[in-house]
Write a protein that binds this DNA or RNA. Structure first.
Lengths: 234, 234
DNA sequence: TATCTGGTTTAGATGGAGCTAATAAATAAA
DNA sequence: TTTATTTATTAGCTCCATCTAAACCAGATA
């Protein structure tokens, strides 16, 4: 039986692991989970014994298929909860992450299914992240981040990170949410990128670190109609 | 900070404690929580240190006001969850207990409040148990159990225990749910009581142990109209 | 009053998850 | 190539919640 702490480690490794299956280091995991490196070493050894990760001493770990399955299941719980809390219980998109982070480890298969049924049409969570299907397949996800875009690019916001509530509240205020169209108006050499939601809106400047957490899709110069988004009211 | 195990102990003690504030014994708690007596001794000492229970060695424990507050808060979570899962997520009343027993320790104040708002009109959980108010006041509850009723008595079912899913499914099948009117048609000297939901219904016999978990209100011989109940569909 | 018996408590162990301090490995710098 | 720095790991501790086996009380029985 897996503990919820183990689930947290698997989820963290999944989220830190790039598409190219590189090893995730001890210190990365430690910082993601706010624990000290020795704790991570102990834990990853245990996960390796159970066949959930492959471990290379001093180099890091990589999820096995089994470990990945668990991680995606937890992520499904997380995103279903976020979507449900926003759609059905009036949560603001900035406050759901914490609640979902706890509950994701404690809902039964039954509740998972009931939530999914109640969210029939919903395929992404309130921040735009795709909800893994019941079979734990993940919809493909944009690989382009706002931080990589060039000056003048026309984009639509696909997904923002759900990690930082204050950042989310700020972006919401600034009108940058999944579905928003943006034009990049300036890339300053001080790790600052400026975007403009609507042609005559106030431009919004964002630190590159923030831009790295925003996934976008590039438009071919023809602004698209805004997609619906599941973001909650204030 | 209280652990969820501590919350479980406080809830168990609350539920075992009679109205007359008698001490609850180590072994009663152990059996309620499915742990061994020494575990209970250790835990109740810790709770006593924190001022949540009063402890008399070899005699048992009693909740302090502070301990009772925690217990009622947990019970509020439990019943809100049960009611919500049945009303909004299509749970059957027989299956909610387990889910609520886990989640009750993990929902935030915010979610507690959101659930309460979504259950505006609901004052009892699906089994008829009153939901403590936000200020942790408990509505008064019938003190009469079916097991204490006399032959021929006219009653309305107020509340059934949520502990045993199979028992609940059986009672549901037999039409004994909160709001049901009953007449006691036989009390056999073999710990068996027979009741009849409707005048020309099939009589239902129940072991006294089961009857002891069903709270009723006696009617003055005039059958009342069935009260609404929040029980879920099959 | 002395003894038995059942429930309670103490003693000591285990497994989970975390920590600090010290050591070891890998990498970067001199 | 040797040294310095960063990063990982080992060693050993703590707390939580549980257990079993042994000792202990207290009320019932003889």
């Amino acid at each position: 039986m897996l503990t919820n702490v183990m689930e947290d480690y698997l989820k963290a490794i999944y989220e830190l692991q790039d598409a190219d299956q590189e090893l995730v280091s001890t210190s990365e995991i430690a910082s993601q989970l706010s624990v000290k490196p020795p704790t991570v070493t102990t834990m990853t050894k245990k996960l390796a014994e159970r066949g959930l990760v492959e471990r290379e001493a001093y180099n890091g770990v990589r999820l096995t298929d089994e470990g990945e399955t668990v991680a995606i299941e937890v992520i499904r719980h997380h995103r279903l909860l976020e979507a449900y809390l926003v759609e059905q219980l009036g949560y603001d998109w900035a406050e759901v992450h914490e609640e979902a982070d706890v509950l994701e480890h404690h809902i039964s298969e039954t509740l998972e299914q009931r939530l999914a049924e109640a969210l029939d049409e919903t395929t992404v969570d309130p921040h735009g992240a795709p909800i893994p299907s019941e079979t734990l397949a993940l919809a493909s996800r944009s690989d382009t981040y706002l931080s990589e875009c060039e000056d003048g690019a026309h984009l639509v916001v696909v997904e923002v990170s759900d990690r930082d509530p204050e950042q989310l509240a700020y972006l919401d205020e600034a009108g940058i949410t999944p579905g928003t169209n943006l034009v990049v108006t300036e890339i300053a050499p001080i790790d600052l990128i400026t975007v403009q939601p609507q042609p005559d809106d106030t431009p919004v400047s964002l630190p590159m670190d923030v831009a790295r957490t925003i996934r976008v899709r590039e438009l071919n110069d023809e602004p698209e109609q805004a997609a619906t988004n599941a973001r909650g009211g204030a």
